[in-house]
Design a protein around this nucleic acid. Structure first.
Lengths: 187, 187
DNA sequence: TAGCATATAGACCGATCGATCTACTGGCAA
DNA sequence: TTGCCAGTAGATCGATCGGTCTATATGCTA
């Protein structure tokens, strides 16, 4: 699938394999499955990441960059600030309609590791702050009267869309959320 | 804590213990932990529920009744149909503000058991249909022009509130959702 | 009182978990 | 050429997993 996975070093192959399997099988996926998927020796995992926990945290740190870049791209360009945020929900509709969509990776990891001080939680917290900052930035560009408040509204619509998409993705929750988002932007 | 738990039979004690531990520790909680919490012999679990999977499904079937009853109660009484639905979000604010709130039980179970044909998924599906039906019923009582559509909007706001409450419950997401719900009711 | 159903207590099973270990291999640099 | 180092392969560790088993105790009923 990804040619780089074949030629890259064991660290990179592990990150790619874990990014895939953690999403499709959840946080309970075993170390042996990750090693097999990555074609990496057992020892290499512990050399590079210290253990499964470190690998999970490293995957989230990487996907956070990827996902933030996706959101930046999904905002579109050339549109008005208002149109940019509405376009985001159009992209979300495509995202959650995909048969392979399984919900928000960060929420799933938070729920999978009940231990409060698992290193993954720091990564999910940081991710959500970045999402929030992105929304605030766009709302300020829009000249919204209450950017922080509206960002919380949009964030709630965002998370709600991902949950609804994961549990009943045939109903196009992103379109529902888009209608409400439009109201938020005008409020 | 609950006096009934001491005197009730092993089946009832198991259901109560599993309802607690599945929520606080997640679906990965072990059978031994459940047995210890319930003070029940190992064999009794398999006699009554056939296995861990059956116990999980039975717990969800019970909590679905409890949670639906909670929603019916949270709608309040005597108010107008519009006031009833808004009151629901006031009750949600109290729910997610509790320090022990850990998000939606049904979503957590869905994510914990990636296996598509795990019996728990049928229970979570049924639960969501009942929630949806409750919302449609209230919207019809309200005389809403598009009860099905508005129910999907409210459902999305509901799920979004639970997710935001689980990950950042200091921000009162239910109040944010309530403002949007009010707009949905008038749309 | 005898017998049966329903509990408990806990040993035990094979499988799998995350993690550590030794032994070996290939390539690169001193 | 020698030595080092990152990598592979895989045995092995103790712990825990869900599930089955035997043995025993208790209480109701015929």
């Amino acid at each position: 699938m990804n040619g780089k996975a074949e030629t890259a070093g064991p660290r990179e192959r592990l990150l790619l394999a874990a990014e895939r399997l953690l999403y499709s099988r959840g946080g309970s996926v075993g170390v042996s499955a990750l090693l097999e998927e990555a074609s990496v020796a057992r020892r290499s995992l512990y050399e590079h990441f210290g253990g499964k926990d470190g690998l999970v945290a490293a995957v989230l740190r990487r996907t956070a960059d990827e996902d933030l870049a996706w959101y930046e791209c999904a905002l579109g360009d050339g549109d008005s600030p208002r149109g940019r945020l509405l376009t985001l929900f159009d992209r979300l509709d495509e995202l959650v309609s995909d048969a392979g969509f399984r919900g928000c990776r960060y929420l799933a990891i938070d729920l999978a590791f009940a231990d409060r001080d698992h290193p993954a939680h720091a990564e999910t917290d940081a991710y959500r702050r970045r999402i929030r900052a992105l929304l605030v930035r766009e709302l300020e560009a829009l000249g919204h009267a209450r950017p922080e408040h509206a960002a919380e509204q949009l964030h709630l619509l965002l998370e709600g869309t991902l949950v609804m998409g994961a549990t009943q993705n045939h109903q196009h929750p992103a379109r529902v959320a888009r209608d409400l988002a439009a109201i938020v932007l005008d409020g």
